[in-house]
Design a protein around this nucleic acid. Structure first.
Lengths: 212, 212
DNA sequence: TGGAATCTGTGATTTTTTTCACAAATACGG
DNA sequence: CCGTATTTGTGAAAAAAATCACAGATTCCA
């Protein structure tokens, strides 16, 4: 078995950055790039770039660097971006409906196929490409192909319940905007986007600089 | 000088989690908590909780744990949450206007005081508590007390320009929603929220599990 | 064609972060 | 007031991640 070393989770995130940059550069017509240059674009060291890529294979040529189109294709494949990923969104409030209208997802192969909300007033509304359904019908997603990624954008007091339901109907990955630590069983991946936490990092730094 | 060890950046983020939990527990009337229990709530080990807190001081009592109200106050102070933080937002599109209407910020002491956009059609609109202004007038923020935190929610091709302008008018911390690596000089902190990257982590994991 | 210049891939090293494990402090029941 | 049970705070150990540094591959140009 050749796959041995553990891949740092952060290396996968950086792979996204590399993909974004080589995609942009390919559009600009650039053909090759060195780890140093790719590092410049992503604010990383050349060694970090090479090490990250080496977790996934050998993509470069000594003396020449990386061929942009083939590196792009390789990373796309690694990240599973050679497929379309259907997504379910729960919670069509402020953030939720902004996400439904956000064109960036679809461009990237992530398509919100279903949206649910508990609020009567929101059910039935069209938002982006989907019509918001009553959360009671959440098991509909079983019919709709195999959605395995969900976005939770509900108030904190219902987020855990929603997560439980989602896992029951087959969701394996949850992007959580609610300020709650979700408890899920071990096969399920949760990633949190917590705006207050981000801002608190800032207020911490600014406060410490102020009174040193 | 007693302050010696470097504080991991992630310890500060976890401090936010602890604050959130103890705030919740205090409302529930709970008086004391052990590191083990706080770890349960935050999905961390007891050792991690104690080590994190120890970077900032000694808050607990052997045999008894932490007094919730005083731990809460201590963390609030560390994170600078004993003050109100004014914020400027640039880009009143999908995401930007959702953030303007999001009540979570204000509750947490982060108040969006000004919003700017380059689009004529958006200028003049009221959104949340503020009226969107023309981005040309961005230096207005110098008048408005001392805003040092900004949120960038503009398209990727203008994000770097906006960042440059913001830094010029005194911004020290930027929460960036645009899928671009921003180049800022070293005194400025940037934190990125990149939804595609988050989803790509999922598609990577799901793809690898699929074909093992 | 050859020699200098470039650049990758990767073991080895260093740095950073997390986990362990235990002395010392406190609580509490009887 | 004493002995047992808790629980903290923290050095030491382990694990994880980033950086270094260089052999070897490739390119380029004269």
């Amino acid at each position: 078995m050749p796959e041995k070393k553990k891949i740092p989770k952060s290396a996968v995130s950086r792979l996204s950055l590399y993909l974004r940059e080589v995609t942009r550069l390919e559009k600009g017509g650039k053909g090759k790039i060195s780890s140093t240059e790719l590092g410049d674009y992503t604010d990383l060291t050349d060694a970090q770039v090479r090490k990250d890529l080496s977790y996934f294979g050998q993509f470069g040529t000594s003396g020449a660097g990386y061929d942009i189109p083939s590196l792009k294709e390789a990373i796309r494949k690694i990240l599973g971006k050679d497929k379309i990923w259907p997504i379910v969104l729960v919670g069509a409030g402020n953030i939720g409906s902004a996400l439904l209208r956000y064109p960036g997802f679809k461009n990237q192969g992530f398509v919100i196929k279903e949206a649910f909300d508990a609020d009567r007033k929101k059910v039935g509304k069209r938002c982006g490409d989907v019509v918001v359904k009553d959360i009671k019908n959440i098991s509909d997603i079983k019919k709709n192909g195999s959605i395995r990624i969900a976005i939770i954008a509900v108030p904190e007091n219902s987020a855990q319940d929603v997560a439980n339901t989602l896992v029951k109907v087959g969701i394996r990955s949850i992007l959580n905007f609610a300020p709650v630590v979700l408890r899920v069983n071990s096969g399920v991946t949760v990633s949190n986007i917590d705006l207050s936490t981000e801002l608190e990092n800032f207020s911490f730094i600014l406060s410490s600089q102020e009174a040193p």
